[in-house]
Nucleic acid binder design. Structure first.
Length: 253
DNA sequence: AAATCAATCAACCGCACTGAC
DNA sequence: GGTCAGTGCGGTTGATTGATT
């Protein structure tokens, strides 16, 4: 059986919503809720399909919608989350109260994407002047510690443009992933040669993450879960860098 | 003032997922 | 396990608005 089209063309209105339609929808939802979007338009007396009603409500009429321009902080959050999550607009929207996935998607395509591309271009140009074996992150003041099995209780917080050393007494993430060792980094660098990403732990599982190596950002988590473990990655990365234990770096360094 | 171009954003489309049967 | 309806999500479209020529 073929699924019915989402919008019956016969007799149902499309296009921009009128103030009157908005009023009807708001009144109905505030009285009866929106348990069944498909049945809602008929019950509310709207000549719209349920999908259109849902979209109008979630993207425009919901009382908790925040209107107006995005703040600098919101834009930075979107850029950061998009870097980590990709086009998962609903997940990104969940981190920005009052903003819809549609709105975030629009602002990304109209403003932020261009800004990020520009920044990346500038950063890449700057990197081209770096000497061979350039390491993006400044080596931290960790004690030289090349044994992955006995990590120091420290972590670093790294952004695209800066690296700052901080101390932490909570390095549970590190202890949870003792496999992060020289072999891990080796696989990251090897994957880079073929433009691929590296999954970690390699066997999969709920906590698997995806890493990629780039001249711009160094080792980056590009997917998977537990982004906080990025600190852990930075920790080991800097340890191996400082200790000279990294495998030979690709030419792009 | 008119025409053209670019930017913006609301809305639509189709696919995927989920739960009920 | 298969089918279907309902819903959510991401990609895309197209109308509108503002800027530029």
């Amino acid at each position: 059986m073929v699924r019915a089209p989402c919008c019956e063309k016969m007799g149902l209105k499309r296009g921009p919503w009128t103030a009157e339609e908005d009023k009807i929808l708001i009144n109905y939802v505030s009285h009866y809720g929106h348990g069944n979007w498909r049945a809602l338009p008929k019950q509310a007396g709207l000549l719209r399909c349920g999908k259109s009603c849902r979209l109008r409500w979630t993207n425009y009429l919901r009382p908790d919608i925040k209107r107006g321009n995005f703040s600098k902080e919101e834009e930075e959050t979107i850029i950061k989350l998009h870097e980590m999550l990709g086009n998962r607009w609903s997940v990104i929207a969940a981190k920005l109260p009052g903003r819809t996935d549609n709105e975030i998607k629009n602002v990304w395509h109209t403003h932020l994407k261009k800004r990020v591309l520009k920044q990346n271009h500038q950063a890449t140009s700057a990197l081209e002047t770096k000497p061979q074996n350039y390491v993006k992150s400044e080596p931290l003041n960790y004690p030289i510690q090349v044994s992955p099995q006995s990590p120091q209780h420290s972590s670093s917080t790294t952004t695209n443009s800066e690296t700052t050393a901080t101390t932490s007494t909570n390095n549970d993430a590190l202890n949870d992933f003792p496999e992060v060792d020289k072999d891990f980094w080796e696989s990251v660098f090897l994957a880079n040669d073929s433009g691929e990403t590296t999954n970690f732990p390699a066997g999969g599982g709920e906590t698997q993450m995806e890493f990629q190596f780039s001249p711009l950002h160094g080792v980056e988590q590009v997917g998977g879960c537990n982004p906080g473990l990025r600190d852990c990655m930075d920790f080991w990365y800097n340890i191996f860098t400082t200790a000279g234990e990294l495998p030979e770096l690709p030419e792009l360094f």
